[in-house]
Amino acid sequence: MLVIKDLMVNYGKITALKEINLRVYPGEIIAIIGANGAGKSTLLRAISGLVKPKAGSILLNCKEVGGKPAPQITNAGIAHIPEGRQLFPEMTVAENLELGGLVLNNYKNVKENMSEIYELFPALKERAKQKAKTLSGGEQQMVAIGRGLMSEPDLILFDEPSLGLAPIVVEKLGEVINNLHRKGMTIVLVEQNAYMALQLADRAYVLENGQITLSGESQELLQDGHVLKAYLGG
């Protein structure tokens, strides 16, 4: 579904990512783990078009999307749920969701998807008319996820969804991601919470200093000595 070949991203003269090769198959959850500043968010930003790659290719369903602007990539079927939620703070929950469905160009689908999202997150239905900024962190994360789902994506990119959330909310978030997985959604999950990410994912890549240093089945990585030591506090 998603094939990345020799991707390289620079910020000015600094190399943020190099020689990234990565594959995501339909229906998979892929985790990308690594320390702060390793380039995890940059990788997602390059996939969704928020930063322009310096070199390499990104294929979505065999079509080149690398280097295209973000709105086009959203249209092509990738939903990026960014770090820090990035909601429209002065707009209502309903308006935030509605904007998520902007690429659909069919108001009926927007309405249908919205009611599905309210089913998925009943708390949001109660708060539909509230401004997004008045919601709790966990609720805001639900809006961000809901907004991403509204566009009926083929692939969802999660950037640090657990960041700043209470442990009990993180647990619920895990269930939500698991549910999406069971429905057949393809997901790339970037997390500092490596344990959570490896529990949820089928496979994982370890990113260090802008390069992939290790990859494999999540269960194997959970046993891996280096991963244990560096990311799981073992």
Partner: peptide, 20 residues
């Protein structure tokens, strides 16, 4: 109107929902 407001409030998020 919603597109205008969304762009003014968060331009990154606006581009992620497909707003040019």
């Amino acid at each position: 109107g919603k597109i205008l407001r969304a762009t003014s409030q968060n331009v990154t998020a606006a581009s992620l929902v497909g707003i040019n």
